[in-house]
Computed example of a mutant assay.
Amino acid sequence: MMGTTHQTDTLIVGGGVIGCAIAYELAKAGVDVIVLEKETLGSQSTRAGAGMLGAQVEMTAPGPMYELGVKSRALFPKLREELLDISGIDMELHTPGIFRIAVDEDDRAALLERQRWQTECGQRAVWFEDEDLRGEMGDLVSPRYGALYLPDDHQVRNPQLLLALAASAKRLGVRIFEHTPMMGFLQEHGAVAGVKTADGVIRADRVIVAAGAWSGLLARQLGLDLPVFPVKGQSFLLDSYSPPTPFTIYTHGCYILPKKNGQVYVGATEEQQAGFDRRPNLRSLASLSTQAVELLPSLGDLPFSTPLAGLRPGSRDGMPYLGSVPGIDGLYVASGHFRNGVLLSAITGLVMAELLTGKETSVDLEAFSLKRAHVFG
């Protein structure tokens, strides 16, 4: 790409699970797409994430975010079949469900209230007292206050989902440029007309910023105050030929996900003050290890595999920004998904493709509009 100029209908800046999901859906609609990634696809928060499709376990109250998560979760079985058919790569959808373990009486009361409103919203949420939980899982867990079982909250393996999306998008004609950092925006007559890179120029009718925790930094180049910021998360993988439970176990500050490849994912911290430092550290991993073994004692005998660390794209209200940037033609944002990038990838890809092709969106995007952010600095 040395000194060359490329032309496309839509340029997506960011090659994580959000950018690749949008590229895939746009390519299905016949749109010419380029994905620009400064490192390798999925090398940031996608690589380090747990892969939970926690539409119920992650949401503490009904509202637009809960509805977005439920709609997205429902898309994954069909999406899995589509991607498997096109690419031959399985995202490893794992469906036994999630147990959210209560840690004290206040947590128990909050989870029982969550069971009430989620059931009223038409979702399955089943309460297990301690003896019921032990009957289901043996003595693997050490509960004291009961647990909420969410049978329809599932999980995938992040690297496989990313590979399936990227390979399918490429099969449909998407061009992917890795190791190509963006150097600045092209602007003509007040509109964004593409980007500049060290290797040349990419002209585009529309540019979507889907750069995760780095989205706010890129927006500053246009004088925009997009409040997306890094929240560091650390986790680790354990090796196991046969994980001790098929269920995802989740509680305050710790969750345990058995993967179909035999590994067990243990996560994850939330560190607001780490900035853009992605290195794992001993204190956080030691704290996670202690919590995990207390929750599921048999994990203590499993061999340690890999530490992981990534930067989640946080937002002030915990909800993503999806849509066009007010006042700048040709510029769109899909970022700020925080802990729910994998869960929301399916619906984000769908609604952004609908928006850019002039269709009515499957979800009302008003609650996720950039108007709430007051982006102009």
Rank of each mutant, 00 (worst) to 15 (best):
M1R: 06
M2H: 15
T4C: 12
T5R: 11
T5F: 06
L11E: 02
G15I: 02
V17Q: 05
I18L: 13
E25M: 14
A27N: 06
A27W: 05
K28T: 13
E37T: 02
E37A: 02
K38E: 15
G42C: 08
S43K: 03
S43N: 09
R47T: 05
R47M: 13
A50C: 11
G54L: 04
G54R: 00
A55S: 13
A55W: 04
A55H: 06
Q56Y: 03
E58M: 11
E58A: 13
P62M: 01
M65S: 10
Y66C: 04
K71G: 12
S72K: 08
A74E: 05
K78H: 15
D85G: 14
G88L: 12
G88W: 14
I89Y: 07
D90F: 11
T95H: 11
T95K: 14
P96A: 09
R100N: 05
I101S: 00
A102S: 07
V103K: 12
D106V: 09
D106A: 15
R114N: 08
Q115A: 14
R116D: 15
T119W: 04
G122D: 10
Q123P: 12
E129Y: 04
D132G: 14
R134F: 09
G135D: 14
E136D: 08
A147R: 00
P151Q: 03
R157C: 11
L165H: 00
A167E: 14
L172S: 07
G173C: 02
G173W: 08
G173S: 05
G173A: 01
F177K: 08
G184W: 09
F185K: 03
F185H: 04
L186K: 14
H189V: 08
H189Y: 13
G190N: 12
A193T: 15
K196D: 11
R203N: 12
A204L: 07
R206D: 01
R206H: 12
V207F: 06
V209N: 13
A213P: 07
A213G: 10
S215M: 02
L218K: 02
L224P: 01
F229A: 01
P230A: 08
V231P: 04
Q234P: 10
F236W: 01
L237S: 05
T248N: 04
G253R: 11
Q263E: 03
A268P: 01
G275P: 06
F276I: 05
D277F: 12
L282A: 14
R283H: 13
R283W: 11
A286V: 13
S287H: 12
Q291V: 01
Q291N: 12
V293P: 09
L296S: 04
P297I: 08
S298G: 10
S298Y: 06
L299C: 08
L299K: 08
L302Q: 01
T306Y: 13
S315H: 02
G323W: 02
S324F: 07
I328W: 01
D329T: 13
G336A: 13
F338L: 09
N340V: 04
G341P: 06
L343M: 10
L350T: 11
L356M: 15
T361F: 05
V363T: 15
E366M: 11
F368S: 03
S369Q: 00
S369D: 03
S369H: 00
L370R: 00
R372L: 13
A373E: 05
H374N: 15
